[in-house]
């Protein structure tokens, strides 16, 4: 399941709901991405995430389908926020459930790696020196390539 939303979400409640009643699942892996309070030594006051409504959901759903093709997954949850948020707030939650831990852990890493380089989101940070669009990082590209 993919949810792209403006509203904050409760990480604990989401994971509890995701794992509830999963009697045949051996394990759940999760990744939670938070707004970082510093960037290149500068204090980040807030961050605004812009996205491309429609394409965002489509891209993340395609990545979920690819994960399900590669690993035996019982359930997948991706929640990604857009809009303005403060340091420490969750931006993204990825959760995967599988009979065995390797599939859950690997698919979770795959999902966040591909999401970072394919889902159409753009981060704009507010610092003491004004607003600045975050540049794409080569090590994110490298992390995504290891799954090709």
């Amino acid at each position: 399941m993919v949810r792209v939303q403006d509203e904050p979400f409760d990480v604990g409640a989401e994971i509890a709901a995701f794992s509830w009643g999963a009697t045949h699942v051996g394990g759940i892996a999760t990744f939670v991405g938070l707004v970082r309070g510093t960037h290149r030594g500068e204090r980040v006051r807030a961050m605004t995430l812009e996205h491309y409504p429609g394409m965002t959901e489509r891209e993340i759903e395609a990545i979920e389908q690819e994960a399900r093709r590669r690993w035996p997954l019982d359930a997948v949850l991706v929640i990604h926020r857009y809009g303005r948020m403060k340091p420490g707030e969750p931006i993204v939650l990825v959760a995967t459930a599988s009979a065995h831990r390797a599939a859950a852990l690997d698919s979770c890493a795959f999902l966040i790696d591909w999401l970072k380089t394919r889902a159409p989101f753009w981060k704009c940070e507010e610092t003491d020196h004004g607003e600045c669009w975050v540049e794409a990082r080569e090590d994110d590209e490298a992390a995504a390539r290891r799954w090709l």
């Binding site: 991405g33 491309y52 753009w122 540049e135």
Partner: peptide
């Protein structure tokens, strides 16, 4: 849907231009 610069365009299309993505 992501495309390369040589993709064909038609009058009914929606075309978006943007910098490399930075989500997650």
């Amino acid at each position: 849907v992501y495309v390369e610069p040589d993709a064909a365009v038609r009058d009914e299309d929606e075309i978006a231009f943007f910098p490399p993505v930075t989500g997650g």
